[in-house]
Amino acid sequence: MCNIGVGLRAEHYSYLEKKPQTEIKWFEVISENHLNSRGRPWEILHTMREDFPLSFHGVSLNIGSYAPLDLEYLKKLKYMIEVFNPFLVSDHLCFTGPPGANIHNLLPLPYNDKTLIHLSEKLDQVQSYLGRALILENLSAYIDFKESTYTEWEFIKKLVEKSGCKILLDVNNIYVNSVNHNFDPKKFIDHLPKDKIEEIHLAGYSDMGDFLFDTHSSPVFPPVWDLFSYAIKDLKDVPVLIEWDDDIPDFPRLEEEAIKAKTIWESHHARD
């Protein structure tokens, strides 16, 4: 069975509190929206957890930063994990700002051996502290660093081997990067160790003319569906999530998009 999920967003709280019938099997929570709240954003997690598994998806772990880890942040995340027992905990392969600033964006790193060693050490600290493997998502990037000596997919594979972290495969990000940085997206997917992929993300981008922008503001586009179809041929039991963060539609429309993912999945695995 295809395990489809969607992001839990404030726009849908009231609808979901009525506990409607849904095909959605799980919800992804942006950890930072709930870590410091004990009001409605916290209460809704209790409500949702009664009926659904949750995954925690972070945007501010800042694992790639040259600065030390934010232990206060990790402490809060660990507490939230203890309270809600999510089946996945993920963040991004990036940094989110220099010390003293949070840019609230997922910023790229140079892909080379120094970064590999640096990230592995950081991941070791995080995974030891949380007592579980961390799942890291590939990002959309609008610049590369000249000092990168690996492609993004080579780097991810090496990082997984070295650190024991797992992969959150964002198919939209692969497609966006493949257009912006001119590579074959299937090569990216083929190169990754399939048994380390723990989750798939799908989302919509915006075509800005000069580049594709990862905006999560629209339905999933056909080339991303095609790439998803290609990716899941060898991935049977990986949870699939639709992200929609801007111009968020009503919940049934979001659910429709998730059902599309399920239909594609079933075309490959229905007889398995």
Partner: peptide
Amino acid sequence: NIIPGGKLDKKK
């Protein structure tokens, strides 16, 4: 030290 993505120049 950067390579821009898409058809963007570095500053853009």
